[in-house]
Nucleic acid binder design. Structure first.
Length: 274
DNA sequence: ATGGCAATGTTTCATTGA
């Protein structure tokens, strides 16, 4: 962290601000790919999900070498979230979890970065409609919506970025008939997602004209990726002041190609200076 | 109707993910 009078040499945002969300499906497995992607794309803020690593083993030095300070809330085997930030940006008020919602699973990390509150989320998968995990998913979303409402009241400039495990509309699904009422697409899950938007947040991807059949996740099986059998379940939600500043949102399908990819692609939104 | 693949650690299978 730079001393205060050194920081004064930097504008608050050197240029446009780039924010990314990426479910890496094991940070240990994905570290080389992530570091290369960061070098190629130079985002300012990166929200990661499914780091699957205990805090004591988090690769903070490798990410520092890549040009990012890391904040994280992890556990072994499952879940785990992190926020990577360029060292020129000031980070304060780092809080894991959802206020008032006891949860062993590490799924949320919030931080104030510059003037903006950033909430990194990994919404539960839900496994199957009607299962215990499905009920946990819906309960979790209800608590998260209340949490985000409180964050929005405190921070007009709010981003919620992560793996929502919900395809909001049929156009976010390669085969809506196949996925109808299945996990990620059931009406209660979509209603839970809309509840986030009710609080004034916008899906940054839908602020812009987008080509059809753009997805952020593809199953590892059945050649789903080359067939583009995917779902758009990773999202960057922005409050109205940030929606005004948002100039693009896109999904980097190329990051799903090649050896040892995550099953998710990164989503990147860009914001102009105010 | 089911498994297909990938990652983890309980490791040579079971569990979870989406």
């Amino acid at each position: 962290m730079l001393p205060e009078n050194d920081r004064a040499h930097f504008p608050r945002y050197a240029a446009a601000l780039k924010l990314v969300t990426w479910n890496v499906n094991s940070l240990s497995m994905r570290l080389p790919r992530l570091v290369q992607w960061l070098a190629d794309n130079a985002p300012d803020i990166v929200c990661l999900q499914e780091t699957k690593i205990e805090d004591a083993r988090f690769p903070r030095d490798a990410l520092a070498d890549a040009g990012y300070l890391a904040h994280f809330a992890g556990q072994r085997t499952y879940n785990g979230v992190a926020i990577l930030v360029r060292p020129t940006l000031q980070v304060t008020d780092i809080v894991p979890g959802i206020a008032g919602f006891e949860d062993e699973q590490k799924r949320v990390l919030s931080a104030t970065i510059g003037e903006t509150r950033v909430v990194c989320v990994y919404v539960p998968n839900g496994q199957a409609v009607g299962s215990d995990k499905y009920r946990y998913k819906l309960d979790w979303c209800r608590a998260a919506a209340a949490h985000l409402r409180a964050e929005l009241a405190r921070h007009p400039s709010l981003v919620v970025a992560g793996d929502f495990n919900v395809a909001p509309e049929d156009r976010d699904v390669h085969d809506p008939a196949l996925w109808a009422v299945q996990i990620h697409c059931s009406e209660p899950e979509r209603a839970a997602f809309r509840k986030f938007l009710d609080d004034g947040l916008k899906d940054s991807f839908r602020l812009f004209d987008q080509p059809p059949n753009v997805f952020s996740w593809w199953d590892y099986r059945q050649l789903a990726f080359p067939r583009n059998h995917g779902l758009r379940i990773d999202h960057i939600l922005v409050s109205p002041p940030l929606a005004k500043r948002c100039v693009s949102c896109r999904i980097d399908r190329n990051a799903r190609k090649g050896e040892k990819p995550s099953d998710h692609a990164p989503v990147m939104a860009e914001f102009k200076d105010q």
